[in-house]
Design a binder for these strands. Structure first.
Lengths: 339, 339
DNA sequence: TTGTATGCGTTATCAA
DNA sequence: TTGATAACGCATACAA
């Protein structure tokens, strides 16, 4: 059992069309520079043979891979897949493929087969890093392709970034709660090392600081429904029970709502809750969730576009693009009773 | 502004180590066949130069891409990204990369740049198709790499498949409702052309048929929260109001619950609801959702493994792997009052 | 406008 | 056990 027919090569097309391989190549890559008559003959031969260019050979010759690698912490997380969709979109428009590496599962250690082996010009024309927990040293090899950081970022890794305005979003959220009269506000955060959590914490402080306030409670979650659910117990255990909670993402907010309701607390009558991200589910939660809208697909698209711009004309300035966010007010937040 | 240093090539390593390029190549790919002494010298030279093999050149020489392409209908859909995570996992263990193509956005028409241009041996060593709506003719080009269908499938496209047991899952769901005394059961389906919906409808019929029953109502949704929400109105409009609903996925079930509650119906007291997939949110919904558990990451992993087996030893038999599913009973289903 | 010839960086064959 | 060299399939500089 052998392969039916070897794929036709440019040579076969050339012979059939009665021209040289160079001419065929030109017809395929830059048709305008070849005579109408010749072009037609070549196109006919291409159609007859069913020829398609061998991408590997072209890539080697042109010293480019034709693809961009996205490094994501968890491919199964819908948060990242929405960003990936935006990236894929922008790349495809430029004829580039999307490669994906799940950094949590890839062994970061071993030099062969581990993450470092992917970070080469011979494997990707560019990198989009969505994982802020990676070691910046990974990207310092001379053979590392251009990098754009998106969504999260890595301390100590220079270069262009595109981020949502996390601090502003958190500030909007807390200011909204303050405006409703709430003063005892709890903050359910992401993992402490996470850059998103850090800037959102900063936004919380920006909102509370001028009033001489601080969160009355703080709990570190893991951006998961389960950790939000667990926060309900933490909230109930507070001596001064918070009247409002800002959660670093919607999953935790929804988990928290479920946990509170299971314990007999009502949202928003007893506790107001704000999330972050505006995932689709936010609008369909038990109590529709007030949250901070962040355009994830757009963020991915901008990251890809920035990478392509950077490849075309490497800029000296460190570009940092901060995308606006907005508060979406739904029913999970209400005025503090008696306020 | 030029590139700092051109990447070292195998030739540079060879010169530094005082051996031939062939020997360097051997040390890298099959160290055991080269003398200890020589090997050490080469390894030292590799370390000094920081050499890493040029993957493009190796791929061209070996006539393989080193990657598998997954065709997904919507990358932003968490349903698919969970499967992708399983695929990525299995591939990485074999040293293969994951390429992703979002088929809904790629223009299927144009020969250049469209989907067909990706379906070549020179672009991927194999294909995993997660989109059952694609034209089977796409995969009939002689240069198309091996294909495995996963999750959904394409009528008229032969070859190995790995599927969840959709019919059994739907049957379990409906049998559960029947066991609770429900007889007026509504079915909220996916898009009519979708293969998943078709086999789930078959499972529904299998459960109802023996009792001489059929769904009292049927509504075609789009696997989205919004379409589930819209189904609430359809349910209320039924002259014989259904007492239970089976939804083809959890998103629609959750949307439906939200819609029903907004109209004053209680789940499960007034209406029992079963979903499909067991997405994480199912357990944290307003009313925890009874649903059919399907191991999505596992499904992806098995698809990738099947592709790799197939590459190693193309089998003549059409392998079709049906993965078991199970019913997860939560609180959204209850006995029919008075039953 | 077209053809010839070289090189992209490897791996694999063959000979030593 | 190692070295010389021919592919792999294409794009492009240069010549015609």
């Amino acid at each position: 059992m052998k392969d039916p027919e070897p794929a036709p090569r440019i040579h076969d097309v050339a012979k059939l069309a009665g021209v040289s391989v160079a001419t065929v190549s030109r017809v395929l890559s830059n048709p305008s520079i070849v005579a109408e008559r010749t072009r037609r003959a070549v196109e006919k031969a291409v159609a007859e043979t069913g020829y398609t260019v061998n991408v590997m050979a072209r890539n080697l010759r042109q010293q480019q891979v034709g693809g961009v690698l996205a490094l994501v912490p968890n491919l199964a997380n819908p948060f990242f897949s929405a960003i990936l969709a935006g990236i894929a979109d922008a790349l495809r428009e430029e004829g580039l493929s999307l490669l994906v590496l799940d950094t949590r599962r890839a062994d970061t250690g071993s030099a062969t087969g581990g993450i470092p082996s992917y970070l080469t010009r011979s494997r990707a024309d560019g990198l989009i890093v969505l994982d802020g927990s990676l070691d910046p040293a990974l990207f310092s090899q001379p053979s590392c392709p251009p990098v754009v950081q998106a969504c999260e970022w890595i301390d100590g890794l220079a270069g262009p970034r595109v981020l949502a305005d996390n601090a502003a979003g958190a500030r909007f959220a807390v200011e909204h709660l303050l405006g409703l009269g709430h003063r005892r506000i709890m903050h359910v955060t992401g993992p402490s090392g996470n850059t998103l959590s850090q800037s959102r914490a900063a936004g919380v402080a920006q909102a509370l600081g001028p009033l001489g306030l601080a969160p009355v409670a703080r709990m570190e979650g893991a951006f998961t429904l389960a950790s939000g659910h667990a926060a309900a117990a933490a909230l109930m255990a507070e001596p001064e029970r918070p009247t409002a909670v800002f959660c670093d993402n919607d999953e935790m907010a929804i988990g928290l709502m479920a946990g509170l309701q299971a314990r007999g607390l009502r949202v928003p009558e007893d506790v107001s809750i704000v999330g972050f991200d505006n995932i689709e589910m936010a609008a369909y939660a038990n109590v529709p969730l007030t949250t901070v809208r962040q355009r994830r697909a757009h963020l991915g698209r901008r990251a890809a576009e920035m990478l392509l711009e950077h490849r075309a004309a490497p800029k000296l300035e460190e570009e940092e693009l901060i995308l606006p966010v907005e508060l979406v007010i739904r029913r999970s937040t209400a005025p503090l009773p008696g306020a």
